[in-house]
Write a protein that binds this DNA or RNA. Structure first.
Lengths: 248, 248
DNA sequence: CGCTAGATTGAATCAATTCAATGAGCGTGG
DNA sequence: CCACGCTCATTGAATTGATTCAATCTAGCG
């Protein structure tokens, strides 16, 4: 049964009440579900993008490349997230978006959205909320990279991912699948691969997490939150909804 | 004569055409102009904010504090910028906003805005555009802090500020007033004060900039842009408008 | 079985921080 | 008018967190 409701509706519903009519309207603007291999660009920096996507399954990221090959991942995109080329149509995208794993996504033509939001002011609110979530996440990342050391950064990322995966049913208790290579984490956290490795290893040894490539379990959530000064508030999830998970 | 048009209208007009009616509507929602001393909190992290502000004069910033006193500045706010507690009403602010210099600002009650945007779809576009500008700026900051070294970061910041100050008439040719202490720059760039100092000094010596506390001149813009891989596109200014300055 | 991508570890190096002083500019009060 | 105290800028020296370089190890795969 579960899995029938698209993940993005699940994610929205955890925070915003949607009438059946609004759900239908949202589903209506989505194109058909398509599949993409890992490591494929979805949106490319500098191009104009007439449509976005809804990520139903798999992980993706926003990223920027520097000339000499350095990469910075701006944000991870998880199932249920909506991917707009940041800039509704007018401005060329300032960054690229790529799949990290194989993904299922709905095409989302942006043309109809403004009209839809005008017809359903509640959807304008939802849209604003999503934008604010995104903004809050990148702001938190700035604090991470700018002022937290490696263990704090890694801890913060692992907690953020847990809290974001919960509402879409991808976190069982305190463990979840983490389909990121250490290189991807490094590119998101502004660290080197080697240092991410050492840091994960250390958090393992300290008994705060159990990390195995592809899988994490948060062993000592309280201590990890203290270490990272993590406060889930910035994710803008409602209190109750944050608890719902597959296993809950 | 100049200065009569509020800076935020000037900033918007550089990119979006506004009808006289829309201008009046925008001015109409602004409260009276008030003054604030330097280093005063405008919005406080964790509080609900029923209103925003329009920054007419002076510099401010969004920031987050960590428990041990580390500070991260997320974004500088310049004259003409609009300051909403990120989260329209519903969510407590995830960060604080404070003045850096003494400031003049209009109070901006948020209550009326959604209705106004519905009445003037063009204003919804303007609002979205502003949000996207903000998002793009913090994303660029992530690249800065995550993957650029100190000289690149400082160069990038100085260029960004120049390009942002131009449309509001605060950049004369290639020099502008920079009312930031080196500590503020350090907190924005994820560096230590000492290192910011050395880096500014180095850029001076290299002849790329002329920095004196309170004042910057970009001496070799081309080389500085190459160094920082700076591309003003992310600021979402229209091509032509970017050229207008007090001295132009 | 050899190949490749990713993970892991040690050692050397380096960019940036911290610690510690000094200097310059400014406002205030004696 | 000048001395004191404050903030901010500047510089040197020591330290360190993180990177780079270089191997080795492992698992999946044709």
């Amino acid at each position: 049964m579960r899995g029938r409701t698209p993940r993005f509706l699940r994610r929205i519903s955890a925070v915003h009440h949607l009438t059946p009519e609004q759900r239908r309207a949202l589903m209506g603007v989505c194109g058909r579900l398509c599949e993409l291999a890992p490591q494929r660009d979805i949106l490319v920096e500098g191009e104009d993008n007439a449509h976005g996507y809804v990520l139903e399954e798999g992980w993706a990221c926003r990223y920027r490349m520097l000339n000499d090959g350095r990469r910075q991942i701006l944000d991870f995109l998880l199932p249920g997230d909506i991917i707009c080329g940041n800039d509704s149509q007018v401005w060329p995208a300032g960054h690229s978006v790529a799949t990290l794993t194989s993904c299922h996504l709905y095409l989302l033509p942006l043309a109809g959205l403004p009209e839809l939001c005008r017809r359903f002011p509640a959807l304008q609110e939802v849209s604003d909320w999503m934008t604010q979530c995104e903004l809050a996440i990148v702001q938190e990342r700035i604090v991470d990279i700018g002022r937290r050391n490696a263990p704090e950064r890694v801890a913060h990322l692992l907690l953020e991912l847990m809290y974001r995966l919960r509402p879409v049913g991808l976190c069982t208790g305190r463990s979840y699948e983490l389909p990121l290579t250490q290189e991807m984490m490094a590119d998101a956290l502004g660290l080197s691969i080697v240092h991410v490795n050492r840091t994960l290893r250390r958090l393992n040894t300290l008994g705060l997490i159990r990390y195995l490539p592809g899988q994490v379990e948060i062993l000592d959530e309280a201590e990890l939150m203290r270490l990272a000064e993590f406060d889930a508030g910035y994710l803008h999830q409602s209190e109750g909804a944050a608890q719902s998970g597959d296993a809950a």
